[in-house]
Computed example of a mutant assay.
Amino acid sequence: MKSLIRIYDLATGRADTLIALDRHIEAPNWTPDGDALIVNGDGRLYRVDLNSPALGLIETGFATKINNDHGISPDGSQLVISDSTEDGESAIYTLPASGGQPKRVTPLVPSYWHGWSPDGKTLAYTAKRGASYQIYTCHVAGGDETQITNDFDHCDGPDYTPDGEWIWFNGERDGNVDLWRVRPDGGEAEKMTSGDSVNWFPHPSPDGRNVLYLAYQAGTQGHPGGKDVELRLMPTEGGQSKVLLELYGGQGTINVPCWAPDGSKFAFMSYEAD
Rank of each mutant, 00 (worst) to 15 (best):
I5P: 04
I5H: 02
R6T: 07
I7K: 04
T12Q: 00
A15N: 13
L21A: 04
I25K: 04
A27F: 05
W30D: 00
G34K: 10
L37K: 03
G43M: 13
Y46I: 02
D49P: 13
P53F: 11
I58A: 09
T64E: 14
N67C: 02
N68Q: 12
D69V: 15
G76V: 03
E89Y: 12
A91D: 12
L95C: 06
S98T: 14
R104L: 05
P110S: 14
W113G: 00
L123H: 13
Y125F: 15
Y125G: 07
Y125I: 13
T126C: 15
K128V: 07
S132F: 04
Q134E: 14
G143P: 10
E145S: 11
E145I: 07
D151W: 02
D151R: 00
P158T: 07
T161W: 02
D163H: 14
G164F: 10
W166P: 01
F169W: 11
G175D: 06
V177F: 00
V182L: 08
D185M: 01
E188R: 07
K191M: 10
S194H: 07
S194C: 10
W200Y: 15
P206G: 11
D207A: 04
Q217L: 07
Q217T: 12
T220P: 13
L233I: 09
M234R: 08
P235V: 06
T236C: 10
G239E: 07
G250C: 09
Q251C: 08
G252E: 00
N255F: 14
N255T: 11
P257N: 10
G263F: 01
F268L: 06
S270V: 04
S270M: 07
Y271A: 00
Y271G: 01
D274N: 12
